[in-house]
């Protein structure tokens, strides 16, 4: 459902994303891993049509993001980095606004709002302005906004950042529950999260895709090519892969 081909993004001399290709199909939760500044968010911004790639193509559910941006955007639910939302709006007002733009109407709209508000537990803060909410609630408002229209494709940039362990657990449960009929990409640098929710993971550093891994079928743990990480030992493998990578400058 998500096809990414030879994606490149340059900012002046800096190559933020360098020839990245991968695809995600329905039912998959792809963990997008990498150190800070690796190009995770930039790639997500290109998938969601916020940034135009320097080269390469992205298509979402058959819609080319550059050629048919609106068609692609309708299929995507996106939680941007930092979960931005209008601080002066109440949580309810903000979700209403997003529901309007998403074209939700009538009974279906009411149903979706109720369902989403319940699933991220926003009932208590619906009438509060968003800038008075705690970081955890803000993140959940952002998540609610992303899943409101029940999109087939979800792009979540650090969905559990700033949440306490219980909230993290809940968000992971929510993602797992939605995984079956969606294609989901989650960026994170919390490696336990990968083991908890992802069915596949790619590691990116200095804009390059370095390794792709999935849970090992015979042994428990994760396998990235020749490298195998025992359960809970993904950190060591992550360090091994990313510290050997070097930045590349454009000619």
């Amino acid at each position: 459902m998500i096809e990414i081909r030879n994606l490149v993004k340059r900012f002046g001399p800096l190559v933020a994303v360098n020839d990245v290709s991968f695809s995600v199909t329905r039912g998959e939760v792809l963990g997008f891993l990498g150190p800070n500044g690796a190009g995770k968010s930039t790639t997500m911004k290109m998938i969601t049509g916020f940034l135009a790639p320097t080269a390469g193509r992205v298509s979402v559910c058959g819609a080319d993001v550059a050629q048919a941006p609106l068609a692609a955007k309708r299929q995507i639910g996106y939680l941007p980095e930092g979960a931005p939302a209008y601080p002066d709006m109440t949580a309810a007002g903000f979700l209403d606004f997003v529901a309007d733009i998403r074209g939700l109407k009538g009974v279906k709209r009411r149903e979706r709002l109720d369902q989403v508000i319940a699933s991220v537990h926003l009932e208590a803060v619906l009438d509060q302005p968003i800038d008075t909410l705690s970081k955890g609630f803000k993140r959940r408002v952002g998540l609610a906004q992303a899943i409101l229209h029940d999109p087939p494709v979800l792009i979540l940039d650090e969905p559990t950042d700033g949440l306490d362990p219980n909230q993290k657990h809940e968000v992971r449960e929510l993602i797992r529950a939605m995984a079956a009929d969606k294609a989901i990409i989650i960026s994170t640098h919390i490696l336990e999260e990968v083991e908890a929710v992802c069915s596949r993971a790619v590691i990116i550093a200095h804009g390059r895709l370095l390794a792709e891994g999935r849970p090992d079928e015979t042994e428990s743990g994760w396998r990235f090519g020749d490298l195998l990480a025992a359960p809970g030992r993904l950190d060591a493998l992550f360090r091994e892969i990313t510290t050997n990578a070097h930045p590349e400058r454009a000619a």
């Binding site: 911004k45 969601t48 049509g49 916020f50 609106l70 955007k73 309708r74 995507i76 996106y78 941007p80 980095e81 930092g82 931005p84 939302a85 209008y86 601080p87 997003v98 733009i101 998403r102 074209g103 906004q145």
Partner: peptide
């Protein structure tokens, strides 16, 4: 400043 531009521009509006 608030980053909401990213939200706004990834919603299906021209």
């Amino acid at each position: 400043k608030q980053g909401t531009i990213e939200l706004l521009m990834t919603l299906p509006v021209r």
